[in-house]
Measured scan of single mutants.
Amino acid sequence: DEIHIHFNGVTIEFRGLTEEAKKALEEAIKRGASEEELKELARRLIK
């Protein structure tokens, strides 16, 4: 299970995320999180 985020022309790929983690990332994107914020969020979620 993986998710691809297209962000300002950059694709960020995450693997092994739970549904909750995906929802958290989607919410962050909707509120306009920066690419760095998304990566940091993903790091926290994957652990």
Rank of each mutant, 00 (worst) to 15 (best):
K47N: 08
K23T: 10
K47V: 14
E20M: 06
R15Y: 15
K22P: 02
D1W: 13
E19D: 08
R15W: 15
I3D: 09
H4D: 04
T11G: 01
V10T: 08
L38T: 01
E36H: 12
K39R: 12
A28H: 06
L38N: 00
E36A: 11
A28C: 08
I3N: 05
S34M: 09
A42K: 00
E40N: 06
E19R: 04
D1Q: 11
E26L: 15
K22A: 10
R44K: 11
I29V: 07
R15Q: 15
K30G: 10
V10F: 02
H4I: 13
L41Y: 02
E36V: 07
N8M: 03
E13N: 03
E27F: 07
L41E: 02
E13A: 03
K47E: 15
L25E: 00
K47I: 14
E36W: 06
L45F: 09
E36G: 10
A21V: 09
G16C: 11
G16S: 10
G16A: 03
I5P: 02
I5D: 01
L17N: 01
L38V: 06
I29A: 04
F14A: 11
A24L: 14
I46M: 06
V10P: 01
R31K: 11
E36P: 07
K23W: 09
K39D: 04
A21G: 13
E37W: 12
E36M: 08
E26S: 09
R15T: 15
E26Q: 12
T11H: 04
G9S: 02
H6E: 08
I29W: 11
R43C: 11
F14T: 14
I12P: 01
A21C: 08
G32S: 05
K47G: 14
A21E: 14
K22E: 04
E2Y: 15
A24V: 13
K23I: 11
A33K: 03
R43N: 14
A24E: 14
F7K: 04
L25Q: 00
R31T: 10
H4L: 08
E37T: 08
A28G: 04
I46H: 06
G9L: 00
S34C: 06
L25G: 00
S34F: 06
I12F: 00
E19M: 09
A28M: 14
A28S: 05
A24D: 09
V10M: 10
A28W: 13
I29T: 02
T18C: 08
I3W: 15
F7C: 15
E26F: 14
R43H: 14
K30A: 13
I46Y: 02
L45D: 02
E19L: 07
N8A: 05
A33D: 09
I29L: 10
R31H: 09
D1P: 10
G16N: 13
F14Q: 03
F14G: 09
E19N: 07
T11F: 05
E20C: 07
N8G: 11
A21D: 14
I29Y: 10
I46D: 08
I29E: 01
E35P: 14
G16V: 03
A21W: 09
V10N: 06
E37P: 00
F7Q: 03
L41S: 00
V10W: 00
F14W: 03
R31D: 13
R43W: 06
T11Y: 05
A42I: 13
E13Q: 05
E19C: 05
R31L: 11
L38G: 00
G16R: 02
I5N: 01
K23C: 08
G16F: 08
K23E: 09
K22H: 07
F7T: 04
R43E: 15
K22L: 13
H6G: 02
E40G: 04
I3L: 13
N8F: 04
A24F: 11
L41R: 01
E36S: 07
E36N: 10
R31Q: 09
L45I: 14
K30P: 01
D1T: 08
L41G: 00
E19Q: 07
R44E: 14
E26T: 12
L17Y: 02
L38K: 00
D1A: 13
E2V: 15
R44T: 10
T11V: 13
T18M: 03
I3V: 08
I5Q: 01
F14R: 01
K22V: 14
E13V: 14
R31F: 07
L41K: 01
K39N: 07
R44Y: 06
F14V: 15
I29K: 02
R44V: 12
I3H: 08
E20D: 11
E2G: 13
R44Q: 13
K23V: 12
A42C: 05
L41F: 03
I29C: 06
T18G: 11
E40M: 05
R43I: 14
I5T: 01
K39L: 15
T11K: 07
D1F: 15
K47S: 13
L38H: 00
G32K: 05
R31I: 06
E19Y: 04
L17I: 08
D1G: 13
H4S: 06
A42G: 05
F14I: 15
E27Q: 11
S34I: 04
T11M: 04
F7R: 08
L17W: 02
D1Y: 14
D1C: 15
E40S: 09
K47W: 04
E19S: 10
H4K: 14
I46E: 07
L17C: 09
A21N: 12
I5K: 01
A24I: 12
L25M: 07
E40H: 06
L38I: 10
K39M: 15
E35T: 07
H6N: 05
N8C: 15
L25R: 00
V10D: 05
L25T: 00
L25C: 03
R43K: 12
E2A: 14
E40Q: 06
V10C: 14
A33E: 04
I29P: 00
K30M: 12
R44M: 12
H4Q: 03
A24R: 09
E40T: 05
K30Y: 11
A28D: 02
E13L: 03
L17E: 02
L17H: 01
N8H: 06
V10I: 13
F14P: 01
H6Y: 02
T18D: 12
L17R: 00
L25I: 11
A24S: 10
E2F: 15
H6S: 06
I29H: 04
E13Y: 15
E20T: 09
T11W: 05
I3E: 04
H6K: 03
S34V: 05
H4P: 00
A28Q: 04
G16H: 13
H4W: 03
A33L: 12
L25N: 00
E35V: 14
H6R: 03
R44W: 09
K23F: 11
E37D: 08
H4M: 04
E19T: 09
E37K: 04
E35H: 11
A21T: 11
N8Y: 01
L38M: 08
